[in-house]
Design a protein around this nucleic acid. Sequence first.
RNA 1: CGGAGUGUAGCUCAGUUGGCUAGAGCAUCUGGUUUGGGACCAGAGGGUCGAAGGUUCAAGUCCUUUCACUCCGACCA
Length: 415
Amino acid sequence: MRQSSLFTKTKKEVPKDEAAKNAQLLIKAGFIYKEMAGVYAYLPLGLRVLEKIKQIVREEMNAIGGQEFIMSAIQRKELWEKTDRWSDDNVDVWFKSALKNGTEIGFGWSHEEPITELMKQYLTSYRDLPTYVYQFQTKLRNELRAKSGIMRGREFIMKDMYSYSLNPEQHQKFYDAVIEAYLKVFSRVGLGEDTYVTFATGGAFTQFSHEFQTITDAGEDVIYVNREKHIAVNEEVMSDKVLEELGVTKEELEKVKTAEVGNIFNFGTVKCEQLGLSIVDAQGQSVPVHLGSYGIGITRLMGVIVEHFSDEKGIVWPKEVAPFQVHLVSLCKEEADVAKADALYKELQGAGVEVLYDDRDVRPGEKFADSDLMGMPLRIVISPRSLESGQVEFKYRASGEETMVAFEQVVSELN
RNA sequence: CGGAGUGUAGCUCAGUUGGCUAGAGCAUCUGGUUUGGGACCAGAGGGUCGAAGGUUCAAGUCCUUUCACUCCGACCA
């Protein structure tokens, strides 16, 4: 994409009402726009990052048998009454409205109820199990206080997956597969080192649920980790008894701030019993289904990545989620040089390289500052100076390493 | 929802005890000079001073109400 046609612009100063580093950088660099507290628009560059993250998640969910679809954001009141989660006393994040005829509706803050209702039409036999479905959905939550930029919004995108299993064994098998898949996701987006499967409150069905917590000062949670054993326990379930069960001592644990990027639950059969989802087993008996719920906050994950990968100059996108792999920065002015820059741009595009081409007529300093701020993994500078020797300059955003590459060798150098 | 703070140009901000046509920097536009780390010179456009009501000869400034935003806390299946 030519930067001269990109409608967004970078800013030198950020709005003073934005304190979170992730939002400051993303706004400065033109990736997001703040509509109101906790509500952000994703601009072209930001959208590309979101899509990159979604694609990684999609691949890993498909790999363990997930089927993607998408539900509605508008939900019926009746379903939530069946599980006693419609009342504002029980769930305080509801956005609610009403149809013209007075029928009350809610805007989905979660989808366990409606999806299970939907599944009643399709899951009728033990032969239909297990079934795994997931979606990327905009969740709406009327948070009392939005904070931390895109890490805790009132409107955000979540990948939520649900498993319908015949029995505890079948459920557990998938649950374990999800843990592995999630770890792959966080590893692929560059957060593997600092993301821990964390024991957390499990609710009524199991002793623990599992959270995926990424170490970051911007986080809202506190967990205790043992980096060597890669064991982590949420502060809320820390006790001598728990530590003993996990085989670690307090002294071996380090207290860290984290952001929850994923969470998985076992609902047992309770939810399906409440909503009336049962199937006929091999013996011809009607039995309730085991439900599991698995979430990854896509937009939050983007925020955590920015918090994690940035320096004083701007964002440092991991290759896997960068909006473009290459930022081609042209300092060329003369017609012949510009033609060479254009040619290189086309060549890169032709080779399937995602390239943002800074063809703007602005001074070099501004281009470099913008390039650092926007944070593509590789910057290729083409200028009269470099072309004198028939070369371009490669500069890697993360390491700062610079090398000169012959004009003709650029594409092959990238492979 | 409790506590604290802030609303003046697209962004960051100044504006004294109420007083003349509301300012600066950045950004934008025009012309010129520049061209490897956010340049410089000259000029231009851009404002119902968050909103509503009130006091006053006179309100960005004082009073009342209200809305929004930020931070701390509580909350976060």
